[in-house]
Amino acid sequence: MSDLDASTPRVFLARHGETEWTKNGRYTGTSDIELTAHGMEQIQSTAIQLVGPGKLIDPARVVQIWVSPRKRAQQTLQLLFGSDGGSSPAGQATITEDIAEWDYGDYEGLIVSEIRDQRKERGLDRERKWDIWRDGCEGGESAQQVADRLDRLIDRIRDVQMPCMNGEKAADVVLVAHGLILRAFVKRWLGYPLDMPLPMMLPPGGIGILSYKNHDIDEPAFFIGMSLPYQK
């Protein structure tokens, strides 16, 4: 049986669509900003192509959704799965701060160059540039705090998926959240420290996929490419 076989449980990472701040690269953590009209179109396009019976994300195979409390993530969830009460996966989603975006604290609404300039003016980072993965955010979360809450969620996911590693029953899960926290999640899923260099891109409205090698709960992995289900 191939590692690409859908019988191995998967974790789908769904990034919310465009907001006004994602367009210009501003750190958006606790600010409750809604999707733009284009952001809604991005998610609707993703849903049409990838979500539905027999598609990449088949609601019949989804047993749990965890979603950030932020409005932009909530909108994304509804656009992906619909909102018909408890009969859709969206109606059974768990809202949790464990997958909320990194709390940027004093850096909320800033871009990287502005943060580095402000820190430089205060005499910080003389030997090396500020890096969120290593240095965290003043007034917000450290990398360790972020890693701790993601590890807690990963433990919950593996408890769900461990009994289903050979297709005993459907056990796909979906995370609906934000760009930086989902990339942080990938690092922790693989057991890497957050400050380990691992360049990744996940555009607004994009879907990432994680799973396991060899149907083994102790071999977490990510897909670097996947064939899509055949659609008649």
Rank of each mutant, 00 (worst) to 15 (best):
L110F: 10
A147P: 11
R126A: 11
Y107N: 15
E138A: 06
I95H: 04
D148S: 14
L150S: 09
E121L: 13
D131W: 05
Q144T: 07
D103M: 05
I99K: 06
D117P: 00
V146W: 02
W133F: 13
I132S: 14
K129I: 02
S113Q: 14
L124G: 02
G123P: 11
E127Y: 06
I132C: 10
R116V: 12
K129E: 11
R134G: 02
R134D: 03
I99W: 05
G109L: 14
I95K: 13
G123V: 06
K120F: 00
K120C: 00
A143N: 08
A100D: 14
L150P: 10
E138Y: 02
R134E: 01
G123R: 12
D125W: 08
R126N: 04
R126G: 02
G139Y: 06
V146L: 14
E127W: 10
E127V: 08
R122V: 02
I111L: 07
D103L: 03
E97C: 02
G140W: 04
R119S: 08
E114Q: 15
D117E: 12
L110E: 15
S113L: 01
K129W: 00
W133S: 11
T96C: 03
Q118P: 01
R149F: 05
C137I: 06
D135P: 03
C137M: 05
S113N: 07
R152F: 06
I115G: 06
E127D: 15
W102G: 00
K129M: 02
E114R: 07
E121R: 13
G109H: 10
R122H: 13
R128L: 02
R116Y: 03
G140V: 01
L110N: 08
E108G: 14
Q145N: 05
I111E: 13
K120G: 01
E108K: 10
K120L: 07
D98Y: 04
A143G: 15
W102L: 00
E141A: 01
L110D: 09
R152L: 09
G109W: 12
I99H: 06
E114C: 06
A100H: 07
E108H: 14
Q145Y: 02
W130E: 09
R152E: 13
E101T: 06
E101S: 00
D125M: 14
R126C: 03
G136Q: 00
E138H: 00
T96H: 06
W133M: 06
V112H: 09
R119L: 15
E97P: 01
W130T: 04
G123H: 07
A147E: 14
D98H: 11
R119I: 05
I132H: 08
Y104M: 05
D98R: 12
A143D: 03
I132Y: 14
I99T: 05
R149N: 08
Q145K: 09
Q144A: 14
D148N: 15
T94M: 05
Q118W: 11
K129T: 03
L150V: 14
I132D: 05
G109I: 11
E108R: 13
L110W: 10
G105K: 11
D98S: 12
T94C: 02
G105W: 11
L124P: 00
D125L: 04
S113P: 01
L110K: 15
Q144K: 05
S142T: 15
Y107P: 09
E108V: 13
